[in-house]
């Protein structure tokens, strides 16, 4: 029974990592930049929901604040690309990376000023309840996280493979120049990708905040999610989720079986091993151009 509960809580954590990693990979595939503020996007999404929902702030119903927060983060991503990153077009990728790191700090402190640096809890209807499957008792929050992640994955799969805009996003990330030649508005597509990454981060943030208290520094979780993205194969969307789940699963099992202090090393040890023995990650999308 212990093992099963560890498994579910690891899966739930892994889903959150996976969703953040998905944001990393979405932006990397489309624009070849790495958004190191992705974890802070997640934090911001969580805090916007908290600000809208909790009694001490706006006190809106939870199910009203969730879509508003997702839309807000989508708009934030879109505008960030349109107003800031588009101007950096043609600059080196390092400049973009450093900009996103700085942005992460700004978001962290801005959130601290607005909502305080103390840990607070989101008044979520799924927090702190149990569901029973036969004799098995599982947290409603953890089950919800897994279900929502699966649904979101299916939704994104259909979006990227069945809709014209989704396929165009893939096309623009595979061959930007050819996308230009076909009349695909590549710049707008980049902004939409940032919007999508923002929205996915908001979902991850809401799910994460339903599991426990949050404070503005939870964005640092992004580092773990980044490791997850690399383990799964940077540049592969299923890989990002898989990497997230692997990291999520390693943590509870490591802390259960290995002495504290050593157990926190395990995800990074795995990252290290993957980079040495399978540098493109587990599900790498490598192709060579034919001449």
């Amino acid at each position: 029974m212990d093992v099963l509960q560890l498994l579910v809580s690891g899966l739930a954590n892994g889903c959150v990592y996976g969703l953040i990693a998905l944001g990393f990979v979405l932006i990397y595939k489309a624009t070849e930049a790495v958004n190191f503020a992705q974890g802070d996007f997640m934090m911001l999404g969580a805090f916007i929901t908290l600000g809208l929902t909790n009694e001490q702030f706006w006190g809106l119903p939870f199910w009203v604040s969730v879509p508003i927060a997702i839309l807000c983060m989508g708009a934030f991503g879109y505008l960030l690309d349109m107003l800031v990153l588009r101007r950096m077009f043609g600059q080196s990728q390092v400049a973009v990376v450093i900009l996103t790191i700085a942005l992460g700090f700004v978001l962290r402190f801005a959130a601290g000023v607005i909502w305080g640096h103390q840990p607070v809890s989101l008044e979520s209807p799924i927090a702190g309840k149990d569901v029973r499957f036969g004799g098995l008792v599982l947290g409603l929050d953890e089950v919800t996280i897994i279900v929502v992640t699966v649904l979101l994955t299916v939704l994104l799969y259909f979006y990227f493979n069945r809709t014209k805009l989704g396929v165009a996003m893939q096309a623009a990330s595979q061959n930007q120049l050819a996308a230009y030649y076909m009349g695909i508005p590549v710049k707008r597509i980049h902004s939409l990708i940032w919007a999508l990454a923002g929205a996915v981060a908001a979902v991850a943030g809401i799910l994460f905040a339903s599991k426990g208290s949050i404070d503005p520094s939870i964005g640092l979780l992004g580092i773990k999610a980044f490791a997850a993205a690399v383990i799964g194969g940077f540049g592969s969307l299923p890989g990002a989720l898989l990497g997230g789940i692997i990291v999520g699963l390693i943590e509870p099992f490591a802390s259960y079986y290995i002495a504290a202090g050593y157990s926190q090393i395990m995800p990074y040890l795995l990252l290290f091993l993957i980079l040495v023995f399978r540098p493109h990650g587990i599900l790498a999308q490598v192709h060579r151009k034919k001449v």
Binding site: V167, Q170, A171, N175, A178, A179, M182, K289
Partner: peptide, 15 residues
């Protein structure tokens, strides 16, 4: 300059 990971049909649709 084709889209390497898209299918032939998807490439045409992108045209």
């Amino acid at each position: 300059e084709v889209f390497p990971l898209l299918t032939v049909e998807e490439n045409l649709r992108m045209g």
